[in-house]
Design a binder for these strands. Structure first.
Lengths: 355, 355
DNA sequence: ATTAGCACTTGCTCTCGTTGAGTGCTAACC
DNA sequence: GGTTAGCACTCAACGAGAGCAAGTGCTAAT
């Protein structure tokens, strides 16, 4: 999702015009009301008369930075204006101590599970931003194996436990027709642990599949069973895991005027798979990414802004977190929050890793 | 939450009046509009003139079954009317084949985890009812131990795996300061399995606590460690588990007119603990329970109806499921759906149990 | 006891001025 | 030539009033 490249010439606007645009966006972010020339004139530090501002506004409208609901209404910044604002005008606030310490709480005392860490992250983000917040679980494909165990829970059922380096535990039941003793299962897990420890799940999958096409005659019973169980254990059957919180904030906030707007958005949230896809698509990039309105490839998000950042351990990018809010969100506040949260989460999850 | 006991005399209303009341409620459920005497007269099978109906309505209003928004508006059934309707008038529809088979899908092919079963249940209920749907995870206190295992994942961290008879798997990390070998952990889990298999978590907790106050001199190292680890493993630190789906349906449906109504309701949903409590309180009773509007002890649900039923295996009630919808829901449809779902879930979860 | 008839109530909708914020243009100004 | 004051124009929002429709309550007749 590369940022739309606009010819420089088109956006070549002089300093004062820039100032006016900045102030319009600021004002709109603050009030969510169309902003008029008179009001703006008063707010502006440099005194410019309403008439002049009208001229400037007219220019900006022509360049596609402003629209108006009807001829006699004030101007509303377009998505393009917000993009411009975010790119060149906004100076990211440094976070207050208070915000910082709120965010640090995500890995507070006694958080022993990665799942809890991620869920805390969404909760804290939701609280601080008052928007919908998302965190993807560490990608299974790049996860590295820390430990695999098989536990026989009944004659035909085996519980598989997969622990990844990043601290994620996954449980899965396998049905077996033939009888296998717990001792034998232990041998198998010992073998698999020996063989695959520290390898990524993706690698393991591939290698197992390769093994299967090799000449089976060469296998002893242990190896054969290990391959069979391993295949089932590492199958990618798991639904994409996504932690989500605060989508009700959007409902509360009447930042989205129409109830129908909200409906569309909410049903997007219900399709977690789609949201996952959107987040995954942003994962290549680095740092905080911002997708404003029409810039969103996913149709359901065209009336929102998505702000995302990755989290990682020392070796790999593990997942993405993000917030979804109105296009007129307070970027100066939100961007650093997302940024800092991603860093704190990275730290926390690195501490949780086993090395 | 016992059903409010109303003196018989107050509700002693003759057959025709009953019929009118029934029809008013029916009509209101269908249209969500105040119902007037003229309209009702036409709908009624037995021909009664509008004027007579007005008299009857006047009586019903006096008895507290009907209200009206203003003098010249039609009548609206009160919560009391719905209670009367549900208790004595509604004949539960038998479920269509279609509905039955939809519900049976909750335990469709390849559902290997109880968690998935429960989550499927909320999804199916949400789809069929278009309301908010809830399922509580099997109560840990009454769960019986099937298997406990300890896996050492790093020098200081131990992963505990608790498998209950009902098929629920729970993971938990324990930090250990002193070093314990995996072999020793295996001995401990063997011991605990031997000792506590089939006992309820509550019993186990108690017994472990008892053991701790006993003379420690008598312990050998194994026993001492087993008690220590066991205590941590069975600690009730887990957040109450609640599966929820379809609360967005309520948002979509405009059955709740005001957006503020919805906000209150939604923030109730955000406090899962409160919802849990409400559901737990209903668990003593048997069969389908219905709490209409003011009958709800929890304030946030006073504008809703809650319909709940338990699910169970052969031995115990395991948890509760329920739907929350508008007071004017279609009871004839919803009640059998909840009832049947609870039965199918009971069956499915019984099949998942290990015996 | 039931019903027809009628006066009355009340919310809803439509229309039509009025108001006010805001624009666009033109002409004057520095 | 850029900036500003002034003025005519536009258009949503608000409010009052008329007409309408649905529904009630009461009274008198059946």
């Amino acid at each position: 999702m590369p940022r739309p490249q606009v010819p420089e010439s088109q956006n070549q606007i002089d300093e004062r015009t820039q100032l006016v645009l900045q102030e319009i966006v600021n004002s709109y972010i603050e009030t969510t009301e169309p902003v008029g020339s008179r009001t703006l004139s008063k707010q502006l530090a440099t005194p410019i008369s309403p008439a002049t501002i009208r001229n400037i506004m007219s220019d900006l409208a022509e360049l596609g930075f402003l629209t108006q609901a009807h001829t006699s209404a004030g101007r509303i910044p377009t998505d393009k204006a917000f993009r411009y604002y975010v790119d060149s005008l906004a100076v990211a606030d440094s976070l207050t101590e208070e915000l910082q310490s709120s965010i640090q709480k995500l890995s507070a005392k006694g958080v022993s599970q990665v799942e809890e860490l991620l869920s805390n992250t969404t909760k804290i983000l939701a609280k601080l931003t008052q928007f919908a917040c998302l965190v993807t679980a560490p990608k299974t494909a790049v996860s590295r194996l820390q430990r695999i165990e098989f536990i026989k829970v009944s004659t035909s059922k085996i519980l598989v436990i997969l622990v990844s380096k990043s601290g994620v535990v996954r449980n899965k039941f396998i049905e077996m027709t033939e009888k296998i003793s717990q001792d034998f299962l232990n041998s198998i897990s010992a073998f698999l642990n020996e063989q695959f420890r520290n390898r990524s799940f993706q690698e393991i999958r591939n290698q197992i599949l390769e093994s299967m096409v090799e000449d089976k005659e060469r296998y002893d019973r242990l190896l054969a069973q290990a391959v069979r169980l391993g295949k089932k254990a590492f199958e990618v059957s798991d639904p994409p895991e996504l932690y989500m919180d605060g989508h009700l904030n959007l409902l509360m906030s009447d930042a989205f005027g129409d109830r129908n707007d909200l409906r569309g958005l909410m049903s997007t949230f219900e399709r977690k798979g789609q949201i996952m896809e959107v987040l995954d698509n942003t994962m290549q990039a680095d740092g905080v990414r911002i997708y404003i309105g029409v810039e969103n490839t996913h149709e359901g998000l065209r009336d929102c802004t998505l702000v995302t950042a990755n989290y990682r351990n020392e070796n790999n990018v593990l997942g993405t977190l993000g917030v979804i809010g109105p296009i007129h969100m307070d970027y100066q506040r939100i961007i650093p929050v997302v940024d800092y949260t991603s860093k704190i989460l990275s730290q926390a999850i690195t501490r949780h890793s086993y090395d």
